[in-house]
Design a protein around this nucleic acid. Structure first.
Lengths: 267, 267
DNA sequence: AAGTGGTCTAGACCACGTT
DNA sequence: ACGTGGTCTAGACCACTTT
């Protein structure tokens, strides 16, 4: 099976020196060529997307993958290196390479960029206010790659640190992917939402884009956060993506930044 | 000279298989070991910091560096790869490896994360309001690694897009590093501030940390931005670093996010 | 001792840009 | 034609973890 893939790869995409040796210089390099390690990276992502290995599990060793794909260990290595840099995989020397999971202590809440002005970082408490099924708006459907009128699950929750409300989240998920998700399930679950979505629904968030603006608190948000109206809030619009860049979550957060700030690094 | 360095590296840090072959198995690996490519990366950063190669210039080819450091091309490659990933260097196939510069069109304003809600991204106009020399506050001195009472240059400017004011920046630079910087120089210069600091003062910003909060506009900022008081603004506190993680700039921006947003990617 | 990822080397050849 | 970075291979050995 893999030998077939290999041949196809080489024929359509790239002439490795091995192939040159084997086949002679028959074919010219094509206009758009993609290196072997990129193709292998793509195949690994597809395997992750199809759930061949679940979050937290080990993927096959480099040597094993190398024999499977009929390439050298170094080529597999480069593919895995990039996936590790993108946090799809986690390497552990001496143990193996694992599918990244939102349950891991070091990764938990890694998409939550709020840090306290003083004191230690601590995990938030989540209180679910509502979880309703509704029709996607036109813009929502477009962002999530849904058809107009498809169902989404709308969640509203409040995050608190040390008992003080700091964030109101409005979360929208394609109902087709998260069938059965309810307020009860959300409430009874401890840990990050993305951990739940990963374990119970097999959808692993790996990347997100955010748009930040400053807005005045509406009366709605001011009551939810226990602050006076018109107080400035940090509004965070997020689109989250799973493997292969499929958008699967829309989220708007309203952050109270009196005692917390949104941290970012520019490189 | 390089042979000496090489020997020292090997003795203190790491036993390459070459070294093992040469020296036999005399020394045991030390507790804290740093791979060769990391050491070479460090030496390259030091060279950049000392200005051995200026922004925009090419550094020596990989083969040249390999013979200099007495390692294989692959080891140099790994060091350069990491520096390219951190945007200290820029690789160009067929041409060479270059020191990253803020003048490059693709890099210009890469620390400015404001994007328009609609329409094309465009470069900002800068209007310098003041440029004064003053004493660093205690906290400022601490952040910049200065002694209490050292001089800093304080710059206030307004950035506009399509003639509309969008940002007020308050910038603080160690006077010792930027002697002679004046409002005139700032005003007569076209392009990003970091480009000027790089060309005229030899200080290249490579990394920055930001803290974002939402605040109400004071009367001061509301007049500068031409908006009503108490309007929500995005406050961005930034510390910028040059090579080897030395902090060299403190900056607070107040962003009007009516028509622009702060974009961010979580990975 | 065995298995995994991590480092390093040496050599071949490809793709890209310049001469 | 040549020099640069980019890819790929094969093999050795190191560091870390588990058996």
């Amino acid at each position: 099976m893999y030998a077939t893939i290999r041949t196809q790869l080489l024929m359509t995409k790239f002439m490795s020196d091995t192939a040159s040796r084997l086949l002679g210089s028959i074919a010219k390099p094509t206009a758009a060529f993609s290196p072997l390690y990129q193709q292998i990276k793509g195949m690994l992502v597809r395997a992750l997307d199809e759930g061949e290995w679940k979050p937290g599990e080990a993927i096959p060793s480099e040597i094993e993958l190398a024999t499977r794909f009929q390439v050298s260990q170094g080529t597999v290595r480069k593919a895995v290196d990039e996936l590790a840099a993108e946090h799809l995989l986690v390497r552990r020397q001496g143990k193996g390479t694992f599918v990244a999971t939102h349950h891991e202590p070091k990764i938990r809440f890694r998409f939550l960029r709020l840090a306290p002005n003083s004191g230690e970082q601590q995990p938030p408490q989540s209180k679910v206010l509502s979880c309703k099924r509704q029709r996607a708006s036109a813009e929502m459907a477009r962002s999530l790659g849904l058809k107009a009128g498809d169902s989404v699950i709308a969640i509203r929750r409040v995050l608190s640190f040390a008992g003080k409300a700091a964030v109101v989240d409005d979360i929208f998920l394609p109902a087709a992917l998260f069938n059965g998700l309810s307020a009860d399930i959300l409430t009874s679950y401890v840990g990050p939402l993305y951990g739940l979505l990963e374990s119970k629904f097999g959808v692993n968030m790996v990347r997100a884009d955010e748009k930040l603006t400053a807005v005045a608190a509406t009366t709605e948000f001011s009551t939810l956060l226990g602050i006076e109206p018109d107080k400035p809030l940090l509004k965070v619009d997020r689109i989250s993506y799973t493997y292969a860049d499929r958008p699967v979550e829309l989220r708007t957060g309203h952050y109270l930044t009196d005692h917390y700030y949104y941290r970012n690094s520019l490189i």
